[in-house]
Computed example of a mutant assay.
Amino acid sequence: MAEIIGEMLFAIVRGFISQALFSLFVKAGTWLDGKISRRSAKVAIGMVCGLGLYFLIPVVLGLRGL
Results as ranks from 00 to 15, higher is better:
1 M>H: 08
2 A>T: 11
2 A>P: 02
2 A>H: 05
3 E>C: 03
3 E>Q: 06
3 E>R: 04
3 E>M: 08
4 I>N: 11
4 I>K: 11
5 I>N: 08
5 I>H: 07
6 G>N: 07
6 G>D: 08
6 G>A: 10
7 E>C: 05
7 E>P: 00
7 E>M: 07
7 E>Y: 15
7 E>L: 09
8 M>Q: 03
8 M>I: 02
9 L>R: 03
10 F>E: 00
10 F>G: 02
10 F>W: 07
13 V>K: 09
14 R>S: 12
14 R>D: 03
14 R>E: 04
15 G>L: 10
15 G>N: 11
15 G>H: 04
15 G>Q: 08
16 F>L: 14
16 F>D: 08
17 I>E: 02
18 S>N: 10
18 S>M: 09
18 S>G: 05
18 S>D: 05
19 Q>R: 12
19 Q>C: 15
20 A>G: 03
21 L>D: 04
22 F>Y: 12
22 F>K: 11
22 F>C: 04
22 F>W: 11
22 F>E: 06
23 S>V: 12
23 S>Q: 08
24 L>T: 09
24 L>N: 08
24 L>R: 09
25 F>A: 06
25 F>V: 03
25 F>Y: 11
26 V>E: 02
28 A>N: 09
28 A>M: 11
28 A>Y: 11
28 A>L: 12
29 G>M: 05
29 G>V: 01
29 G>Y: 13
30 T>H: 07
30 T>L: 09
31 W>I: 08
32 L>M: 13
32 L>V: 06
32 L>W: 07
33 D>S: 10
33 D>Y: 06
33 D>P: 00
34 G>C: 02
34 G>E: 03
34 G>L: 01
34 G>A: 03
35 K>C: 02
35 K>Y: 01
35 K>F: 01
35 K>T: 05
37 S>I: 07
37 S>L: 01
37 S>H: 03
39 R>D: 13
39 R>A: 10
39 R>Y: 06
40 S>M: 04
40 S>I: 05
41 A>N: 13
41 A>Q: 14
42 K>I: 00
42 K>C: 00
42 K>W: 00
43 V>W: 04
43 V>A: 09
44 A>P: 03
45 I>W: 01
45 I>F: 04
45 I>Y: 02
45 I>M: 11
46 G>F: 04
48 V>S: 13
48 V>N: 11
49 C>F: 12
49 C>T: 06
49 C>W: 07
50 G>C: 10
50 G>N: 15
51 L>W: 12
51 L>S: 13
52 G>P: 12
52 G>T: 12
52 G>L: 15
52 G>S: 15
53 L>E: 13
53 L>R: 12
53 L>F: 15
54 Y>T: 14
56 L>T: 13
56 L>R: 14
56 L>V: 15
57 I>N: 11
57 I>C: 13
57 I>A: 14
57 I>S: 13
59 V>C: 10
60 V>R: 06
60 V>P: 00
61 L>G: 08
62 G>D: 03
62 G>S: 04
62 G>E: 02
63 L>D: 01
64 R>A: 13
64 R>P: 00
64 R>T: 09
64 R>F: 04
64 R>N: 10
65 G>N: 01
65 G>C: 01
